[in-house]
Each structure stands twice: as C-alpha cells, then as structure tokens.
Simulated scan of single mutants.
Amino acid sequence: MPYQTYKKIALVGATGNLGAVVLQELLASNLFEITVLTRTSGTSTGPPGVKYIKVDFDSFDSLVTALEGQEALVSTVASAAVQAQKLLIDAAVKAGVKRIIPSEFGCDLHNVKTRDLPVYAAKVEIENYLSELAVKGVSYTLVYTGPFLDWGLRNGTFFNFKGRKAELYDGGDQLFSTSRLSTIGKAVRRILTHPPETADRAVWVKDIDVSQKQLLKLAQALTPGEEWEVKEVDTAELEKQAREEIQKKNIGPTTMLNLIRRAIYAPGYGNKFQRVHNSVLGIRGMTEPDLEELVLSIFGTK
C-alpha cells in the first residue's frame, strides 16, 4: 500500500508535560485534523481547531468508536499507563488506524542492558506486541529521545539547583543523549509526514550529547561563591537495591527511578546514541552555546 502523509491524528495524553507540547507542534503546523481522547472525567475543551472526545479507556468499544476514521494514533501517556496501551492499540487496529506511535520517548530499549531493567518491562511488552502486529500489516514507530532536557533541568532530574545539591552518578562523566520537549514534538510531526522512512522501526533523535558534570558546571557558574553539596553515587548499587526491593515486593518511591538513573548515566547502556535520524526528522540539534543559553533561561533569574 502506498504511503502518504497522515492527516487525521488521534492524540492520547495531551494534557501531560510532553503531550501538551506535541499537541502545540501538530497544531502549529496546520497539517493535521487533531482529535484528543480524554477520560470521561477530564476536560473536553482546549485550543481551537482540536476536537475532544471523552472516552472510557477501560472500554474496547468506547475506544474503537473514538478512533474510527483516524489515520494515526499518538500516545504520550505517563509511565504508569504504558501497559494499559494494549487495549488502546487493539482498538486502533479494529478501527483501521494506519500508524501507531506508542508512549516511548526515553532511553534506548534496543540496548540489551537497558531493555533488561524492570522499569521498562511494560514498554518492552508494548514494543513486542507492535512488532507482532506489524507482521499483520499494522504500522508503528518507536521514538527514542533520551531524558527530556528542559523538563529535566526544571524538575531536578540532573541536579537540585534550588537546594544546591547534586548526586553524580558513576562519576558524572558519561555522555548521554538528551532532547527538549519541543524537539520531540517536531520529531512526532515529521514521523506523521514521512511515513515510508519511519515505518515499523525505531527512530533515535537528540538535541545534544552532554554529561552530568557538564550540566552541573553550567549551573554552578550561575551561583558564584556558593557552595554546592556534591556526592558520588554508584548506579550498579542502585540497580542491586532496586531489584531486591522488587523481588521483596517492597517498591518504594525511588525504586524505579533508580533503575532509570542506571539507564541514563551508566556506561554501556546505550545512553549516548551512536546513530540518529535527525536529518530525516528535521531536527537541527543544539550547540554548546545553545545549551548554555537554555540553562541560563531556566536558572539565570532564580
């Protein structure tokens, strides 16, 4: 079947940190007819030009009805809802949706070490399911982006700017690929306008490769004369503790987070992308001055 740009797009997770930015990018392009699926208890209004449908996400029939006539489905649901995407995917298949982009947007799960971390079990399950469906003619695209750069800086992923504290994982020297939310939004848009190049595969995008120490140095430059509390943390130990907690069914608030830290910062986990699809997806990326400007824009007036 010949590919063409998808026009009718269903978006799930549009009120989340990433989903809101993806929605803005799709809207700004003026290329798509966008339908946002929301929970029956959620909001049914938003930016002009967007159709909102309230859906029972536990009902196959409700999902099928909402997805009928849609050409592509983009999911940006939070990690806790990743496994629930299976019903959504089944409904999309039944409704005749041509392309599915699941909520991936993170570390490289083609790396065997990362793929083995329990925190990614639900994503791996969805990936395997989509791979099986592709044999039956259902098209999909996985998007690996590394951690969210701007969101991560604002929310303490890399260090605690307000508290002037930092934990350097495995020395803090490992380069990892990272992307801004707006860059991910652009990648999604280009996937929808470049179906042949992105069909039934994973794509990798990034703004820049950076280390935790580099980010910390930029932050410390904005706090001259102030003392930072910096300590080193071994992610191998974090993984060991997390697996023990999972085995004992004693999962705490940081159990899964520590496994994500292992994937982002530990050498050998595919965190520095060796090949990317930036050119196909129209991603310019960032220079070091761009990165300095971003850090300054977030922390410079604090």
Rank of each mutant, 00 (worst) to 15 (best):
I89A: 00
I283G: 06
Y120W: 14
D56Y: 09
S59W: 03
E167R: 08
V77N: 10
R262H: 12
L168C: 02
E239W: 01
P147L: 12
L291G: 04
K54R: 11
Y120T: 05
R164S: 14
V22A: 04
V77C: 06
Y52H: 13
P2G: 02
K213F: 13
V82A: 09
N30K: 14
N250Y: 06
L238Q: 15
I89K: 02
L257P: 07
V203N: 01
L88R: 04
Q24E: 05
T223R: 15
F299M: 15
A166E: 01
L149A: 07
P48K: 08
V77F: 09
E239K: 07
D116F: 00
R115M: 08
S59P: 02
A78I: 09
L218Y: 08
A80F: 00
W204E: 15
L215E: 04
D116G: 04
P48T: 12
V74Q: 01
D108P: 03
K231S: 14
P267G: 12
K249N: 14
G268H: 03
G13K: 12
Y144T: 00
T145Y: 02
T145P: 03
R262D: 11
A134T: 04
N155S: 08
S179A: 10
L23N: 14
R164I: 01
Y265W: 12
E245A: 12
L27H: 06
Q4E: 08
K272A: 15
A266G: 10
V50E: 01
E292N: 11
P47L: 13
